[in-house]
């Protein structure tokens, strides 16, 4: 991609862009547990339904965002960038963040004594296992390009154990992954 490509739309039609924005606006309101929890749906949208990118490019978007400072939701921007340059990046990011932010603002205004009511506790408790299942699905989807290799699973196991048992920073584990990849181990 040369610099000028950033400003092009890569042949995307306006209709596609609007649909993309609306789809992400819907995901925004479903994303209890963050943007990564709804990544399986994004992968379905970009890779399977529209064929805009392959599995590897999808996973790379998440990996790039994880290796940079800032909120992880920025991977959504890379997806948009790939299909429609800066306009695409703005579309996916705004779609992903605007509806949920408006909702958060509305709810945040009521100081939440009711946060402990049985109704809200039931929602939190009920959605937790679903978020958990979605995050596992995201892990599975991100492994699409590499999951046939046993070495990838070894690296996943090392990452998981390090995250659960040590205070290792995520950045260190990403760096370890990069090193393993450069050495041709995964």
């Amino acid at each position: 991609m040369n610099l000028l490509d950033l400003f092009g739309l890569h042949g995307m039609h306006l209709v596609d862009l609007v649909q993309l924005g609306l789809h992400f606006a819907m995901l925004s309101l479903l994303a209890v547990g963050g943007a990564l929890a709804v990544a399986p749906d994004m992968q379905h949208y970009f890779v399977i339904a529209h064929g805009w990118m392959n599995d590897e490019q999808f996973t790379t978007a998440v990996a790039l965002a994880q290796s940079a400072p800032g909120p992880n939701v920025l991977f959504v921007g890379i997806l948009g960038l790939r299909v429609a340059g800066l306009v695409g990046m703005a579309t996916t990011l705004i779609g992903m963040m605007l509806p949920s932010s408006i909702l958060a603002r509305g709810v945040g205004r009521f100081r939440t004594r009711r946060a402990e009511s049985i109704g809200l506790r039931a929602i939190t408790a009920g959605l937790t296992p679903l978020t958990l299942g979605l995050l596992l699905s995201t892990g599975w989807v991100l492994l699409a390009p590499t999951r046939v290799e046993w070495s990838a699973w070894v690296l996943v196991a090392i990452t998981v154990v390090a995250m659960l048992r040590t205070k290792a920073s995520p950045l260190l584990l990403i760096a370890l992954g990069a090193a393993a990849g450069m050495a041709g181990l995964v």
């Binding site: 990996a63 994880q66 892990g139 590499t146 090392i158 992954g177 181990l185």
Partner: peptide
């Protein structure tokens, strides 16, 4: 490799 590690982080 970073993609694999990212999957590990999510898991």
């Amino acid at each position: 490799g970073m993609g694999v590690a990212a999957a590990g982080l999510v898991i």
